[in-house]
């Protein structure tokens, strides 16, 4: 049976249909989950897509983390379910404390909308399982607050535990240690600033992102809920 992916929708989210379409094309089944929902039962994986949840007021993700659905997302993550935050979704996951660090304004204070080379650093996370380390992907970025930062102790921990999932080959935004994506201790929660769903079909100019979303569907298929 096709893995079921919940795509969480906050007011101001704007990449939910891109994510839904990409999941469907790659053999999964995606359904939108409204932010007032308090359950994510029945899903094998969750995507928090990009956009401007709650208008990015205060800080990106600062208001969204208090949404009713986030309690269910945290429980799903704690039970080992695959959760991926893309762009604004990554910001929400850091604000919610499900991923370490924070995303601040880009070095140079420019909104970046371009395609950048990104290197896969781990092959053992929900988003990269089975993807060879060192694979270089051309992925779209589209953000103002994508400059990853954390304290020195956290950075040391991320390196020691191999939790830097993706790195920029040519750092576009000032991110600490060229970090484009990180994961939690359990490796089932991954956040990344690039948009794999926008590069999931040759018609979009690239299908480099499909390898990541396909890996997510593999992870989803391996969770108990899919059995």
């Amino acid at each position: 049976m096709a893995p079921r992916v919940g795509v969480v929708l906050f007011p101001g989210t704007n990449c939910e249909h891109d994510a839904t379409l990409a999941v469907g094309q790659l053999g999964g089944r995606a359904d939108l989950v409204w932010h007032h929902e308090t359950s994510v039962a029945g899903f094998d994986a969750l995507i928090l897509p990009g956009g401007f949840a709650h208008g990015d007021y205060l800080r990106p993700g600062a208001i969204a983390r208090f949404s009713p659905v986030m309690g269910a997302v945290a429980e799903f993550a704690a039970a080992g379910g695959p959760v991926v935050g893309i762009c604004n979704g990554f910001q929400v996951l850091t604000e919610a404390g499900l991923l370490p660090g924070a995303l601040q304004k880009n070095r140079g204070l420019r909104f970046l909308c371009t395609t950048v080379p990104v290197r896969v650093e781990r092959d053992d996370t929900a988003l990269t399982t089975g993807v060879p380390v060192g694979t270089e992907l051309g992925l779209p970025i589209n953000h103002f607050e994508g400059n990853y930062t954390c304290d020195a102790r956290t950075l040391a921990l991320l390196r020691d535990e191999g939790r830097v999932v993706l790195r920029y080959a040519d750092n576009p935004n000032g991110s600490l240690d060229d970090i484009a994506g990180v994961c939690n201790e359990g490796r089932n929660v991954v956040g990344l600033m690039p948009h794999p769903e926008r590069a999931s079909d040759r018609l979009l100019g690239s299908d480099d992102g499909a390898v990541l979303l396909t890996a997510l569907l593999r992870s989803a298929g391996a969770t108990p809920a899919a059995a």
């Binding site: 601040q104 880009n106 070095r107 140079g108 204070l109 000032g174």
Partner: peptide
């Protein structure tokens, strides 16, 4: 305010 040691691109600009 941003913590000491955290880059402040607005302040710097």
């Amino acid at each position: 305010l941003l913590r000491a040691g955290i880059a402040d691109p607005q302040g710097a600009t």
